[in-house]
Design a binder for these strands. Structure first.
Length: 295
DNA sequence: ATGCAGGGACGAT
DNA sequence: ATCGTCCCTGCA
């Protein structure tokens, strides 16, 4: 730990993942290490570097399925790119950032991570989640390094709110405890949400204390296979305002902060415009907006 | 140094 | 339907 976040996970020459969606990844030497639920995963370039790479998981069972699931190797990326490339800007970004991919996170980790993500920034989110993992996760040794798995719902639910606050969560502690409780008690079944459509699954997530439209959309896109979800953060809002006047609000006040009503309107428009893979388009726009930024 | 931004959402007007 | 507030950190 203690390393500055990378702007992207360079998986191999043809594959890149924005770190904005996966907080607990870090690069050490020629390898990327990531916390993936109750696993630690490693992705490294082969030493004889002809573009080859290898994936490992600890524990080592089901490695192939884990890799395929995590990096969405089951997606038909060609036809996805083709479809979102109906938009000229996304088309050019898809060419420039060829290899950028979405990850499929563990649903619980994704939900709990984004509950911690409101009104803050990525370095701070990494710090909070790292502290939570260290305190409530299980230590796993890989390559002589110590990592911590992501805490279980019940562990987070059992924790006192004050303990969660001491991990740097601030007022988000209450929301995390609530979300963890919903999962731990079975009131919220994330696996069920995977089988629902976007609207129904979103409605369920919005019931949770501390989960608004933005965070719900992130969880839907990054872990529940709703590729039509289109999360709008301040950067995406700016991208829309400067490049998509037809999608932005007529109101000139529309710049970065969206009211609930504005969010729903802009999101609906973007989802209709970009289509069933709007979420992939969102990732190209987000990645583009983040270029040159420190994290 | 004081203010503000940073992957927002809640609760009171 | 808007608006102040919430915890915390880095940076201008």
């Amino acid at each position: 730990m203690g390393r500055q976040p990378q702007s992207l996970v360079q998986l191999d020459p043809g594959m890149t993942v924005s770190s904005g969606q996966a907080f607990l990844w870090e690069k050490m030497g020629r390898s990327w290490y990531g916390v993936h639920g109750s696993r630690i995963v490693r992705f490294s370039k082969k030493r004889d570097g002809d573009g080859g790479f290898e994936f490992a998981s600890f524990p080592e069972d089901d490695v192939v399925a884990v890799e395929s699931g995590l990096f969405r190797l089951d997606d038909d990326i060609g036809s996805i790119i083709a479809e979102i490339s109906r938009d000229p800007l996304v088309c050019s970004l898809a060419a420039r950032y060829a290899g950028l991919r979405l990850m499929r996170q563990e649903p619980e980790q994704c939900l709990f991570s984004f509950v911690c993500a409101s009104n803050t920034n990525i370095p701070m989110i990494r710090r909070m989640l790292g502290a939570l993992a260290k305190k409530y996760g299980k230590a796993v040794s890989v390559d002589g390094l110590t990592f911590h798995t992501f805490p279980s719902a019940s562990a987070l639910h059992r924790a006192e709110e004050s303990e969660l606050r001491s991990c740097g969560l601030g007022y988000r502690a209450k929301a995390l405890k609530a979300a963890a409780g919903a999962v731990a008690t079975g009131a919220l079944n994330l696996n069920l949400l995977k089988k629902m459509g976007y609207d129904d699954a979103r409605k369920e997530l919005l019931q949770l204390y501390g989960v608004g439209p933005k965070i719900a959309d992130c969880v839907l896109l990054f872990s529940l296979d709703k590729l039509d979800a289109f999360p709008i953060d301040v950067w995406i809002a700016r991208a829309l305002a400067s490049n998509y006047h037809q999608l932005a609000l007529q109101d000139a006040k529309f710049s970065s902060k969206l009211t609930l009503r504005q969010y729903e309107a802009v999101s609906k428009g973007a989802r209709e415009y970009f289509g069933r893979y709007a979420g992939y388009a969102q990732q190209f726009l987000y990645y583009h907006m983040r270029q040159g930024k420190k994290w």
